[in-house]
Simulated scan of single mutants.
Amino acid sequence: MINLELNSKQQENYNNLKMMAEHMMRPYSRKYDTEEHTTPVEMEEVAKLLAQDRPVAAAKGGGSDTGIKNGGNMMAVTAYEAMCWGDVGLMLSMPGRGLGNAAISAVATPEQLEKFGGRFAAMAITEPGAGSDSANISTTAVLDGDEWVLNGEKIYVTDGGRCDVVVVWATLDKSMGKAAIKSFLVEKGTPGCEVTRLEHKMGIRASDTAAITFSDCRIPKSNILGNPEVAKNAEERKKAFGGVMQTFDNTRPPVAAMAIGVGRAALDLTRELLGKENIELRFDKMPINSTAIEAELYRMEAEWSAARLLVQRAAWMADNKQPNSKEASMCKAKAGRMGNAVTLKCVELCSSLGYSENELLEKFARDSKILDIFEGTQQIQQLIVARRVLGKSSSELK
């Protein structure tokens, strides 16, 4: 039986992070949104504080005081939700919170965890010729003695300029398709690894987004994540790429939780602003007796709750060692779409206040769009869900 109730430690952690987001992130939101590419040094201190106060349950993925097994994954999604209620860009710029860290936590060996687990890691997948189609990656990795040699270009690398380590997806043999794709750990400063530009963006401006080139970049043989062997037959190849793609099962629920956080932020601020005009939600009132604005708020609250439950379900399944690929894609598709739709509607409902930089609503709307795009667009998520439901392979259903 599934039960998504947070245990007392998780609820306390959520409350504390929400308070931190309000007092240590929100005050800097507009500053770093305006000063794009400026490093938010205040977040380095916040990261240190979080590292010191990290609950044991988050590291061990323990049980709860109610007998419900909601561990590290549930702790993670509620933490991302709370921090993104404060500011998505600042959360992404926080050392130790990079998307690559989730990949390392998911598949690294004990030795790799010892070396890279506590470092700021970015994820480099997208290329000029490969976006949602991850199997079309052309960056190459060739084994030369005790080193891998990487060549290629990656774009839209979140935190690629500030991170310590980059998790790079590359192919061992382009002719073998997706079965030969592996992920590698490349430390920043390695000869041949160069950040070539930082992108100017609509949202999450506090977080840098980089293009990185790899030119005969040599890394130790041990810096490959997962099995270095290329599968010999079709069944092994399917399992091999499936193992690489499992990284997304770990990273999609947290990204969906980010959309939950910014959606909640927009709803809270909208209700606060409309409350000054005596527009308040009363859930004991029949919908037919509501005004048009109240009806919109009721609908958005329902959409937000549905998305949050999907995120928590995917996290619960991960904590209980249940395959959650379909559920991870479902929550990412739903939450990404909800976050963008809700924040834009909140801007509309608040009229000139929503569009003005005097309030953060317009920023919430701009920040929300990327959460519907990275880690796979909702269209890709819906395709994955359809394959799972219909029992089709990627070649059978494109």
Rank of each mutant, 00 (worst) to 15 (best):
E111M: 00
R30Y: 02
F241L: 04
V244Y: 15
L6M: 14
S368K: 11
A240D: 06
T39A: 14
G100N: 00
M245F: 15
L225A: 08
L360D: 14
G63N: 10
G192H: 13
I2D: 06
A51M: 04
D284G: 15
T251Q: 10
L353V: 05
V389Q: 14
V347F: 01
A256G: 00
L269E: 14
T140H: 05
G339K: 10
K326A: 14
D216N: 15
E229T: 09
V311S: 03
Q52N: 02
E5V: 13
G63W: 04
E194Y: 02
S183V: 01
E194C: 02
V77Y: 03
G152M: 06
A170F: 01
R205S: 14
K238M: 03
T139W: 02
R366A: 12
V56M: 13
G161P: 06
L344N: 12
E194H: 04
E199N: 10
P254Q: 11
T209E: 10
K332Y: 02
G89K: 10
V389R: 08
T34Y: 11
E277C: 01
E272G: 00
Q379S: 08
G118Y: 08
E187Y: 08
E5Y: 10
S93W: 08
R218G: 03
P128C: 11
N324K: 05
S138R: 14
S29N: 02
E296S: 14
E12Q: 15
S175N: 14
K232F: 05
K321W: 01
T343E: 10
A265N: 00
L273D: 00
T270I: 07
K221V: 06
F120V: 01
A302L: 06
L273W: 02
A76P: 02
G242K: 00
T126G: 04
A307W: 07
Q52A: 08
T158D: 10
A210M: 03
R388K: 14
A335T: 04
K201M: 09
I380A: 12
A206N: 11
E235A: 12
V56T: 12
N15P: 08
Y80E: 11
S393K: 09
A57S: 15
L143T: 00
A314M: 01
P254V: 10
N324I: 00
Q10M: 14
T158W: 03
Q382M: 13
A315K: 07
Y355V: 06
K201L: 11
D87V: 00
A259W: 09
E22C: 03
A82W: 07
P228K: 12
V342E: 06
T158L: 10
K239A: 15
I181K: 03
G391A: 05
T158N: 09
S356W: 01
A135E: 14
V166Y: 07
L310N: 12
L397R: 03
I288W: 03
D268H: 13
